[in-house]
């Protein structure tokens, strides 16, 4: 039986103070994410996908409901405790890559290891191996501005996976990439996540990559309106 990574019960979140201008992002959402699962969240813009991703990764606090991440109730955790949990157990891959422009591909990749107390030399060695594995062995010292979109996303994926997190959250990882590169990037993401037994939650609009999902959750108006499992 696979391990539960995330459990969300009756999650509610809205933005804005005024009653008239209040936007409901999540309205009583329930969800579980299992280890080694590739879950995709799809739906129209504003349906609450990114809000859900932010809450389940511990960087946004819900208005009500529970979110249990690796057995920890995020409601009961202080900011520093949440930071420590993210540092150890969560990996991020962003739509805009979010690489630090002044740091090389290698340095960007080492950040999670450095945050987790690895010796810089050891971190460099691990990062170099991983970047070589994804075909960037000759681009270790390149700054993000000298990398193509696909290369940047591969660096971002390596950064998201390098510390072997139990959960990797990805926000539109293929939207800035062409079709071919998008498929390659997703294959790579799945390969790295599965090899580390991580759960992968991907927010996407890109139907070209739906086939990679084990489960596809369609969201609308802050709720899960339909669930598809692989093959259905």
């Amino acid at each position: 039986m696979s391990k539960t990574i995330v459990t969300c019960n009756q999650l509610k979140k809205s933005y804005g103070d005024e009653k008239e201008s209040r936007v409901v992002a999540l309205s009583g959402l329930d969800l579980t994410v299992q280890a080694e699962e590739l879950l995709m969240l799809v739906g129209p813009s504003g349906c609450g996908k990114t809000t859900l991703l932010s809450i389940m990764s511990g960087i946004l606090t819900q208005d009500s409901g529970d979110c249990i991440l690796f057995g920890h109730d995020l409601n009961k955790m202080k900011d520093d405790q949440k930071s420590a949990l993210r540092k150890n157990k969560v990996g991020f891959v962003f739509q805009a890559f979010n690489l630090i422009p002044m740091l090389s591909a290698l340095e960007n990749t080492t950040i999670p290891l450095i945050l987790n107390g690895f010796d810089p030399q050891e971190a460099n060695s691990i990062a170099a191996k991983l970047l070589t594995r994804v075909g960037l062995g000759s681009r270790l010292d390149a700054l993000p501005s000298h990398l193509s979109g696909g290369e940047k996303q591969r660096v971002a994926i390596c950064r998201g996976c390098i510390h072997k997190p139990g959960l990797i959250v990805c926000d539109e990882p293929t939207s800035n990439l062409d079709h071919q590169t998008g498929i390659q990037v997703l294959k790579l993401l799945k390969e790295l996540a599965i090899s580390e037994k991580s759960a992968l939650v991907i927010v996407t609009h890109d139907p070209r990559i739906f086939d990679f999902a084990d489960r596809l959750l369609h969201m609308d108006d802050g709720r899960i309106v339909r669930e598809e499992t692989n093959g259905t």
Binding site: I59, D79, N88, V90, F92, N98, P101, P112, L115
Partner: peptide, 16 residues
Amino acid sequence: LRHFATLKAMGTTHRT
């Protein structure tokens, strides 16, 4: 700000 926010998301504490 975005880079610092990325670092914060990745678990960098306010102290660091």
